[in-house]
Design a binder for these strands. Structure first.
Length: 893
RNA sequence: GGGCGGUUAGCUCAGCUGGUUAGAGCACCUCGUUUACACCGAGGGGGUCGGGGGUUCGAGUCCCUCACCGCCCACCA
């Protein structure tokens, strides 16, 4: 009787057609939606996912995020935990407007020509298109999100959460409106936060300008001046003082006097302030409080006037006299030219400086004095900091806790207002008397909270919130907060928050602060941060560099699972990785390997099927033991969020243990013509059972491939899959006992097989040739081991006949040895020169190691101080090596 | 100017609380059409763990120091 070679799987895994169909099956089975009621006694596992930007094309960062989260979610779902992974999209205020403005420009429209209402209508059309695309793309990745709970940061639920959250901050005195210097992007025409103001090192110029001193009549003294150094000459119209270092003797006599501002003739007090570096420039600084963060502080300390000189497009305003209306850089050139003509441009020098640019559009950001909405986050930050310090929230990898703490300790008030249209409008109303009413009601306040004027006389704030304000409410606003909904009670607080370390401050910190303030509990137990996916040269991927790998194209080519393996393997949390073609190929090869293993297993079914019978053979017991160890290890690694470790564990088990050794040994059993049909059936049963457990282990890493194999496996071997038609809903395998004796036996046999193969290679024997092998077992136990493994030794080392009773024979000098005994190849190969050399090298190696261990064990410091198990291990090892040497006819020195 | 991370095989990276002879994948060399897989199999070569000190019976792992590389934060115009 022969086994059928007919496989029920096609020769190749066709990802592009197979994967979407599988995702459809998952959706049809409602596999990602938690049961109406949590399973009794189940632990909760909820992931807080960063909702992708509505504007963004899917990139590898999204893919990595989705893969990491999906692995965890699938694992916990299989564990039977009450698992939720909620999908969402972020409205991305400034980013979305940036994109839409560009689209509008192509249509010859602008924000201004449309007006707020039509602009927002247009935005919704745009959003509704892209939102679906984002969802489809995540499905292609295999992300097992609960689509029935899809949320959007601009939906009604979010809107209500935003209003309530802000009202609470206002009532607590933490939200306020006030005048302050903020970062202004003249292109986006809005305030931006410190985090969105990206600092760049750039080459600039440092100009030295003479400010003439005022004479007795308050007129510029042509012969006396103070020279100030500046990188921004156009801001002189906002100057209200000149400052020097208090103890700078060069200027001691000038402090208290006045200088005259060029062009405008304004009298500027010369003041002393420690902010000034006496060694920089001329040691004298022009002070422009309304356009520089340092000067602003100086201005406040000295009670200086603050004069705004720029409009919202960064053009000079009426304060600039003849220069009014010019763009800031045109004005700079013009001012310099005039100063030169007047002879007051004393010098210019190249200067390396730091310039802030808008994260979104790259425009140079201007500090601008304006009335803004702020949140005082200091008290919130302290609570968030305490949560991390006291371990109620932990950050993985742990060193980011320091980064987090440093930022939290130095946090400034959060300017939450944006002068944009796309976003949640700040729920504040002004009455004609200047009173402010903050309301969380959907239709606004009924009357002014202070004077009772009716709503009809109130006007709402036009500013909207920073996008991150609504994102900061994400973990609970998506579950129904502020209502105590069943979902909120069941799924909040969440367990793992996973995202790129880049948005630790932007998002994680805000969620922590707002979550603690609003819900009195840490919104998640663990923050898992992943790194950036870079190109093979370590460069960040960007469209302008043209080094972007499109995940969707890659998936078309090699499959989503292959990409997942490539991105997750060998990547520690918080560490950037380089994605190379070799890594992608490696992922593809692994999926292919598993596919082919499945083809073999399915094709190896005995026909006709008999009743399984007899005790399990050595390979069967061994693979069960290895499987048990693997399950235990993989489970531990997943629980510890060690995804790369988990991937390596299952990869090694699947490829090395299962395919390279178990299946090869199982073939011996499955193809034994002398074996009773019942025994063959039993081997196949073991093969399918262990393979099914392997698929369970692989499922989080290879969701599509493992699922594609599961169904045909279940058809052929229902006992293996437990009748569960979908792997996604199957249970995570339970670890049986590890059998140390079997492990050791097979280890020794494998070692012997490898040694024989090595000798064959050294002797230059044709790979297909069968050679006689003589073996002299080291003892009775070893003889038994070899007898038990003889069939596998013969097949895998390709030796026949096998002579297990060769003690008495004369050993050729090419004999090798291992723990089982001494062995040598028969026939001509035995005397081969290369084999002898190799054997001699092996003996030399053994002697060296024996000598090393004897020295170590002869050292009393070691035997006395090292732990007993360590010493014992060394002793056993020495004994083993000595035995091997002795078997080769040496006394070991 | 602060702070953080990195430096391990030709390349990309793992190495938990210090404990055998430091691992993996890729690349490289040799061999192979054994009916799952050449996107494969078998065998092999290759590392003074960035330098220097120290603690220890024992250090890739802990401490100090130096050198490069990278990142984050920051108010010298």
């Amino acid at each position: 009787m022969t086994t059928t070679a007919r496989s029920q799987l096609p020769p190749r895994y066709e990802a592009a057609s197979v994967e979407p169909a599988i995702y459809e099956r998952w959706l049809a089975a409602n596999a990602f939606t938690p049961a109406p009621e949590p399973p009794p006694g189940a632990k909760r596992f909820v992931i807080t996912q960063p909702p992708p930007n509505i504007t963004g094309a899917l990139h590898l960062g999204h893919a990595l995020t989705a893969f990491v989260e999906d692995i965890l979610v699938r694992y916990h779902r299989m564990r039977g935990d009450d698992t939720l992974w909620l999908p969402g999209v972020d409205h991305a205020g400034i980013a979305a407007q940036f994109v839409l403005d560009r689209l509008l420009a192509e249509e010859g429209e602008t924000r201004a020509t449309l007006g707020r209402e039509r602009y927002l209508e247009r935005m919704w059309l745009f959003i509704n298109e892209t939102r679906d695309i984002i969802g489809q793309q995540h499905q292609r990745l295999g992300a097992s999100l609960d689509w029935s709970r899809l949320r959007f940061t601009m939906d009604e639920g979010s809107a209500r959460a935003v209003r309530v959250a802000f009202k609470r901050l206002w009532d607590a005195g933490l939200a306020y409106r006030g005048e302050a210097l903020v970062n202004w992007c003249p292109r986006c025409r809005t305030t931006i936060s410190d985090l969105e103001n990206i600092k760049h090192d750039e080459a600039g110029t440092l100009w030295t300008i003479r400010y003439h001193l005022a004479d007795a009549d308050g007129r510029p003294d042509p012969d006396r001046w103070i020279s100030v150094a500046t990188t921004r000459p156009e801001t002189i119209f906002g100057d209200t003082a000149v400052a020097v270092y208090p103890e700078d003797e060069r200027y001691a006599d000038l402090v208290g006097r006045e200088a005259i501002l060029p062009f405008l003739g304004r009298r500027l007090p010369i003041i002393a302030d420690e902010h000034v570096e006496r060694d920089f420039g001329t040691g004298a600084v022009k002070i422009t409080p309304a356009h520089d963060f340092d000067d602003y502080e100086v201005g406040r300390r000295h009670g200086l006037p603050m004069i705004s000189i720029l409009d919202e497009d960064a053009r000079l305003n009426e304060q600039a006299g003849e220069f009014a209306g010019q763009d800031r850089y045109d004005a700079r050139a013009a001012v310099l030219e005039r100063l030169r003509q007047m002879g007051d441009l004393e010098g210019e020098a190249p200067h390396q400086m730091v310039i802030g640019r808008c994260d979104r559009c790259g425009t140079v950001v201007e500090p601008r004095l304006s009335v803004q909405w702020f949140v005082n986050v200091k008290p919130l930050a302290e609570r968030a900091l305490a949560s991390v310090r006291e371990g109620r929230t932990r950050i993985v990898p742990i060193h980011f806790e320091k980064v987090f703490a440093h930022w939290m300790e130095n946090i400034h008030d959060w300017a939450v207002g944006r002068q944009l249209w796309w976003g949640h409008r700040i729920p504040a109303w002004y009455c004609p008397d200047g009173h402010i009413t903050v309301s969380d009601a959907a239709d606004g306040p009924g009357a002014c909270a202070e004077c009772g004027r009716p709503a009809t006389e109130l006007t709402q704030e036009t500013d909207i919130f920073d996008t991150w304000f609504s994102s900061g409410l994400w973990p609970f606003s998506t579950l129904g907060w502020p209502e105590q909904t069943p979902d909120l009670q069941r799924f909040y607080p969440t367990q793992v928050m996973e995202t790129a370390y880049e948005i630790l401050f932007f998002w994680v910190a805000r969620m922590m602060m707002l979550g603690l303030f609003l819900t009195d509990v840490e919104p998640f137990e663990t923050v898992y941060l992943h790194g950036i996916v870079r190109d093979p040269y370590g460069q960040k991927m960007s469209k302008t560099k043209g080094n972007v790998v499109d995940p969707l194209e890659m998936i078309e080519e090699i499959g989503a699972d292959a990409l997942r393996v490539a991105l997750v393997s060998g990547n520690a949390p918080g560490v950037d990785q380089r994605l190379t073609p070799a890594k992608l190929t490696g992922g593809r090869n692994f999926t292919n390997k598993m596919w082919n293993a499945a083809r073999f297993v399915l094709g190896a079914a005995p026909e006709p099927m008999a009743q399984p019978d007899g005790d399990e053979s050595l390979p069967e017991r061994w693979i069960r033991s290895r499987l048990a160890a693997t399950i235990e290890r993989a489970t531990r690694q997943l629980d510890a969020l060690d995804l790369a470790g988990y991937a390596a564990t299952v990869h090694e088990f699947a490829w090395s243990d299962y395919c390279d050794w178990y299946l090869e040994m199982a073939k011996v059993e499955l193809r034994r013509d002398d074996a009773p049909a019942g025994e063959r059936a039993r081997v196949w049963r073991t093969t399918t059972e262990t393979f099914a457990d392997l698929l369970r282990l692989l499922h989080p890493l290879l969701p599509f491939v493992s699922e594609a194999i599961w169904e045909p496996l279940g058809n052929a071997a229902p006992w293996a899959t437990g009748g569960e038609p979908l792997l996604v809903r199957a249970a995570w395998p339970a670890a049986a006992a590890v059998d140390g004796d079997v492990d050791r036996t097979v280890d020794q046999l494998r070692d012997l097989i490898r040694a024989v193969r090595d000798q064959r290679t050294a002797a230059g024997v044709a790979a297909g040739a069968w050679l006689p092998l003589h073996v002299a077992p080291a003892g009775a136990a070893e003889r038994e081991t070899m007898a038990g493994g003889a069939r596998y030794l013969e097949a895998l080392a390709r030796v026949r006949p096998l002579d297990l009773a060769a003690e008495g024979s004369a050993r050729p000098s090419s004999a090798g040895s291992n723990a089982l005994g001494t062995f040598w190849l028969g026939s001509d190969a035995a005397s081969d020169q290369a084999a002898e050399e190799r054997a001699a090298a092996r003996r030399a190696e053994l002697r060296e190691q024996v000598a090393r261990l004897r020295t170590l064990l002869g050292n009393e410091a070691f035997t006395n101080r090292a732990p007993a198990p360590v010493v014992e291990r060394e002793r056993a090892r020495l004994a083993d090596l000595e035995a091997q040497l002795a078997a080769l006819g040496e006394d070991g020195g």
